[in-house]
Simulated scan of single mutants.
Amino acid sequence: MGALSQRSAKLVRPVAVVAATAVWVLSALVNNMSGWMFAGTATAGALLTVLAVALPMQAERQARDRAATAEQIGEDAAARMQLVIDDALEPLAWAVA
């Protein structure tokens, strides 16, 4: 994982929390607005809501992918170890038989 990805992974939760808080503040401000100001604020709120929901979902997906990759690496290592052990014990099996 690159340096930028690590830095962005650390920022996912704070950015999502700030976005969700900003949506709450915008919803409080919308009560006194109308016209273009209301439309712009509502659009900003919708975008911030998408950001607050999408960032944690993306982080969860990346974590799930990393876990699957780690599991596959472990399975490959176990299979290689089994092959090495089988190859090491084969001459012993011939000697005993």
Rank of each mutant, 00 (worst) to 15 (best):
G2F: 02
G2C: 02
L4Q: 15
L4A: 14
Q6M: 07
R7Q: 15
S8T: 14
A9V: 05
A9I: 02
K10S: 15
K10A: 15
L11W: 13
L11H: 14
L11R: 15
P14F: 08
V15W: 02
V15Y: 02
A19D: 03
A20W: 01
T21N: 11
A22Q: 12
V23P: 05
W24I: 10
L26V: 14
L26P: 04
S27F: 09
A28G: 15
L29W: 05
V30N: 04
N32M: 06
G35Y: 03
W36M: 09
M37E: 13
M37R: 15
F38I: 00
A39W: 15
T41Q: 09
T41H: 04
T43A: 15
A44R: 04
G45D: 09
G45P: 12
G45V: 09
V50S: 04
L51G: 00
A54C: 03
A54H: 07
L55D: 00
L55S: 01
L55A: 06
M57W: 05
Q58L: 06
A59H: 05
A59Y: 00
E60N: 11
R61I: 08
R61S: 11
R61W: 04
Q62C: 11
Q62S: 13
A63V: 09
R64V: 15
R66D: 15
A67P: 00
A68V: 06
T69K: 15
A70I: 07
E71Y: 00
E71A: 10
E71W: 00
Q72I: 00
I73D: 14
I73N: 13
E75D: 08
E75I: 10
E75K: 14
A77F: 05
A77S: 12
A78T: 05
A79C: 03
R80M: 12
M81V: 08
M81I: 05
L83F: 01
V84F: 01
V84D: 00
D87I: 00
A88V: 03
E90D: 12
P91H: 03
P91S: 05
A93K: 02
W94F: 07
V96L: 02
A97E: 13
